[in-house]
C-alpha cells in the first residue's frame, strides 16, 4: 500500500542527553502509508529518539539529518515541526493545570489552521472525535492531564492526533497503561487516522498493540542503534524469545546494559 513517497527520513541520527550519547547513528525511511514499529529493551533510546525528533530541548541531535516530506526539520522549533506535520504522542504526557482540554485543543487547532482560520466547526469536530474515542464529555472542561489516570492521558493523546491530523505520527508507548477495552478503542482511533498519505512510527514493548495496528516494518533498537529490522513477524519472534538472541546474533557487539 506504500506509495514510496518518503515522509520521514532519518540519516545517521545521533542524540545526546545530558552530555551522553543515547542514540548512536540510526537511519530510517518511512514512506507515506507505512506503519513502522520500534521495539527494544528499557533504556535503549526509543523515547530519546522520539523526543529528539520532536525538538525536545534536552535531547539534542548532534549528527545526521532528519527530513519531513523532503524538508530538513533540524532548524525548526517544536511548534514549527508540529505545524509542518509531525506529531508525538508522549509516553508520559504532561499536566497543564488550569487549561481545559477544550481550550487547549482549540488553541492547537487554530495554531495549525492559521490565526484567521474559520473555527466554527471546532465544537462539532471535537465532540465527534471525543465520542469516537469513548471519552466522556466532561473531559472537555477538565484541565489537561491534571489528575488523569494513565489510560485517560493516552486517550487524550490520541484525541489530539485525530484532531490535528499530522502527516507523521510518532506514538511512544501509547499502549502502556491501557486496559483491554481501551487498547481496542485507542487502536481503532489510530487505524481511523491512518491513510495512504500519512505515516506512523509506533514505539512499543508488546505484540498486543501490533495485533490491532499492523506494522509494515519492525525495528529492534538496542543501546541506541537499530540492530535488526524485519516485517510484522519479527515482533512475534521477539514476543516469544525476548532480546537475547538479537544481541547474540550481533556477535554480542550490542549488549544491553
Amino acid at each position: 500500500m506504500s506509495s514510496h513517497t518518503p515522509l520521514l527520513v532519518l540519516k545517521d541520527v545521533h542524540v545526546e542527553v545530558e552530555g551522553k550519547e543515547v542514540v548512536a547513528g540510526v537511519s530510517l525511511t518511512i514512506n507515506a502509508g507505512e506503519t513502522h514499529a520500534i521495539m527494544g529493551p528499557n533504556g535503549s533510546g526509543k523515547s530519546s529518539l522520539s523526543n529528539a525528533l520532536m525538538g525536545h530541548p534536552s535531547y539534542k541531535i548532534t549528527r545526521g539529518d532528519v527530513s519531513l516530506a523532503g524538508r530538513s526539520i533540524l532548524a525548526m522549533s517544536a511548534d514549527e515541526r508540529s505545524r509542518a506535520g509531525l506529531f508525538l504522542a508522549f509516553q508520559y504526557p504532561l499536566a497543564i493545570p488550569g487549561v481545559t482540554v477544550a481550550n487547549f485543543m482549540r488553541t492547537a487547532l487554530m495554531a495549525h489552521r492559521g490565526k484567521d482560520a474559520d473555527m466554527s466547526d471546532f465544537r462539532k469536530l471535537f465532540k465527534a472525535e471525543m465520542a469516537a474515542l469513548s471519552i466522556d464529555e466532561k473531559f472537555a472542561t477538565r484541565y489537561v492531564n491534571d489528575g488523569f489516570s494513565g489510560g485517560e492521558k493516552k486517550r487524550i493523546e490520541i484525541l489530539q492526533l485525530s484532531m490535528l491530523q499530522p502527516k507523521m505520527a510518532i506514538l511512544d508507548e501509547t499502549d502502556s497503561g491501557l486496559d483491554i477495552d481501551a487498547l481496542k478503542t485507542v487502536s481503532q482511533g489510530i487505524n481511523r487516522f491512518h491513510n495512504k498519505s500519512n505515516g506512523i512510527l509506533l514505539v512499543t514493548h508488546y505484540q498486543r498493540l501490533l495485533d490491532y495496528v499492523k506494522p509494515d516494518f519492525v525495528h529492534v533498537m538496542m543501546s541506541g542503534q537499530f540492530v535488526k529490522s524485519g516485517g510484522a513477524e519479527l515482533a512475534l519472534k521477539l514476543e516469544d524469545l525476548g532480546y537475547d538472541w538479537v544481541s547474540e546474533e550481533n556477535g554480542g557487539k550490542v549488549t544491553v546494559k
Partner: peptide
C-alpha cells in the same frame, strides 16, 4: 516542559 508539550501541538512559545 509544559511549554514544550504545548509547542508539540503547534502552539508557539
Amino acid at each position: 516542559m509544559q511549554v514544550f508539550y504545548l509547542q508539540c501541538r503547534g502552539i508557539d512559545y
